[in-house]
Amino acid sequence: MRASAAKCATRPASSACPCCTTRPARWPWPNCWRSSIPTSLILPHLGSFGDDWAAQLALIDHLARHRNIHADSSGVRRFDLLQQAVRRAGPHKVLFGSDGPWLHPGLELHKIQLLGLPPADAALITGGNFLRLARLA
């Protein structure tokens, strides 16, 4: 665990966590984001469906720092951010998502294929991570 994640994990639940969020302490997620909590979070759309580049970029940092935070790939318009998420956090932190029928699953799957990952890493994203998190594998 990185030092920043360890600091976050020891922060009192009632206080704001500057390493996780700039939102006030009343926002309920900082407790869940703490790496010491056994709950895994899967944040859809790499954290923002509204094409909020800053929000998606900020989530990549959390993916890399907190072992219990994951994201899905659905609706990510900026391919460079999807590449960065996999490069910085690892393929074990990203799950394939399509948002079908609103977004075509074939197009969303093609984005994963375009990452050019080794077959084992691509298999994690396209199903292995979900199976692991759901404790089905």
Rank of each mutant, 00 (worst) to 15 (best):
M1V: 11
M1K: 11
A3E: 15
A5T: 10
K7R: 09
K7D: 07
C8Q: 11
R11E: 15
P12F: 13
P12Q: 13
A13W: 04
C17E: 04
C20T: 07
T22A: 04
A25T: 04
W27T: 08
W33V: 08
W33Y: 13
W33C: 07
W33S: 05
R34S: 02
R34F: 01
R34A: 04
S35R: 09
S35H: 10
S35V: 12
S36I: 15
P38A: 14
P38V: 13
S40W: 05
L41C: 12
I42F: 03
I42Y: 01
L43R: 07
P44H: 03
H45Q: 11
S48K: 04
S48G: 05
D51G: 08
D52E: 14
A54C: 06
A55Q: 02
A55K: 00
Q56C: 06
A58S: 15
A58F: 12
A58N: 15
L59W: 03
D61H: 11
D61E: 13
H62P: 08
L63P: 05
L63K: 05
A64I: 00
R67M: 06
N68I: 12
I69S: 00
D72G: 09
S73L: 10
S73Y: 08
S74P: 03
G75Q: 02
V76F: 13
V76Q: 14
R77I: 10
R78P: 05
F79T: 01
L81G: 12
L82A: 06
Q83T: 14
R87W: 02
R87F: 00
A89V: 11
P91R: 08
K93F: 12
L95D: 03
G97Q: 03
D99P: 02
D99G: 13
G100S: 12
G100A: 14
P101Y: 02
P101D: 06
P101N: 04
L103M: 13
P105C: 01
G106F: 01
L107G: 09
E108C: 03
H110M: 08
I112M: 12
Q113S: 12
L114K: 15
L115Q: 08
G116Q: 07
G116Y: 07
L117A: 07
L117R: 05
L117H: 05
P118H: 10
P119H: 09
P119C: 09
A120L: 10
A120D: 14
A122T: 10
I125A: 00
G127C: 07
G128T: 12
N129P: 08
R132Y: 03
L133H: 02
A134L: 11
A134H: 10
R135P: 05
L136Q: 14
